[in-house]
C-alpha cells in the first residue's frame, strides 16, 4: 500500500518548523520506524530526518513522537493502524525540539533527581509485584504529553516520576520513606487531577492507575490517618 507521510522538520529549535511530505510503498505490517529508515536511506540520504531510536522493539522509549496527534513509539506504530493512508509525525510537544523529531527530554531526568529517586539504604523487598511494574518505565515521556496538568518548568512532575517513585516508595527503608513521601506529595499528589488521561497511553502498558492508587495510599492516605502501623504500600 502507498502511505503518505507528513513529517515536521526544523533544523534547530530556533528555526520555524515546516512539513515535508513523502510517499512510500510499503507492506501493511511495517512500523513507522521502518518507514523513517527507508525514507532516510532511499529518498533523502543527504538530509536525513533526525530522530532517536535504539531497540526497535518498544523497550527503550527512544523513538517516542507524536503520530497523528497521539504520542507513541514509532517502532510500535504499524502502518495498518492508519487505514486512511496518511501519517503525520511531529516531535513531542512538551519538550524543547533539538531538531526534526528529536526532543531534549533531560527535564524528566532532572525531575527524578529533584525528587530524590534512589534508595538511601538497602531495599526492603516487600512488594515485588509493584517494584517490578514500576521498574518497567521507559522514560519515554508519552504520559507527560497527554497530561493536562504537566507543563515543563512546573512543580508537578507527572507520571514519568510517579512510576519510578512507586518502586522506591515500595522498597525504601522507613527513615527514607518520610522524605520520599514529602517529595511525592509536593511533586505528584498535589498536582495530579486524577483525570487519568495518562492511563491508556503508556507504550510499556504500565498500569499507571494502579501505581497511582497504591502510591497515593502509601504516601498520603496512610500517613494522614495513621490507621496502620505498616506504612508500606499494600495491594
Amino acid at each position: 500500500m502507498i502511505i503518505k507521510l507528513d513529517i515536521q522538520r526544523q533544523r534547530s529549535s530556533s528555526e520555524k518548523p515546516h512539513i515535508q511530505s513523502f510517499s512510500v510503498d510499503t507492506d501493511a505490517l511495517a512500523s513507522v520506524a521502518e518507514l523513517l529508515e527507508r525514507i532516510n536511506s532511499e529518498q533523502i540520504p543527504d538530509d536525513p530526518i533526525q530522530w532517536e531510536r535504539s531497540c526497535k522493539q518498544k523497550k527503550c522509549g527512544a523513538c517516542a513522537m507524536v503520530i497523528n496527534g497521539r504520542p507513541r513509539l514509532a517502532c510500535d506504530a504499524r502502518v495498518n493502524e492508519y487505514p486512511k493512508g496518511v501519517i503525520k509525525l511531529e516531535p513531542l510537544k512538551k519538550f524543547p525540539v533539538v531538531c526534526d523529531l528529536i526532543v531534549d527530554r533531560s527535564i524528566m531526568f532532572g525531575h527524578l533527581k529533584k525528587l530524590g529517586a534512589w534508595l538511601e539504604g538497602e531495599a526492603e523487598t516487600r512488594d515485588n509485584d509493584i517494584s517490578y511494574e514500576a521498574s518497567r518505565c521507559l522514560q519515554c515521556g508519552c504520559c507527560l504529553e497527554v497530561c493536562p496538568n504537566f507543563y515543563p518548568g512546573g512543580e508537578f512532575f507527572g507520571t514519568a516520576v510517579l512510576v519510578p517513585a512507586s518502586r522506591l516508595i515500595a522498597q525504601s527503608p522507613e527513615e527514607q520513606k518520610k522524605r520520599l513521601y514529602g517529595e511525592y506529595g509536593e511533586h505528584f499528589y498535589r498536582g495530579c487531577g486524577k483525570s487519568l488521561s495518562c492511563k491508556d497511553i503508556c507504550p510499556a502498558g504500565i498500569d499507571t492507575e494502579r501505581l497511582l492508587v497504591n502510591s497515593n495510599a502509601a504516601a498520603v492516605w496512610k500517613r494522614k490517618y495513621r490507621k496502620s502501623k505498616d506504612s508500606g504500600p499494600s495491594e
Binding site: L112, A117, W118, E120, Y132, S135, R167
Partner: peptide
C-alpha cells in the same frame, strides 16, 4: 525482563551519586 530490572536499580543508584 531481568536486564530492564537491573538497569532500573543501577540507574537509580547512580542517580544518588549524580546528586
Amino acid at each position: 525482563s531481568t536486564g530492564k530490572m537491573i538497569m532500573t536499580a543501577l540507574t537509580d543508584e547512580v542517580r544518588k551519586y549524580e546528586n
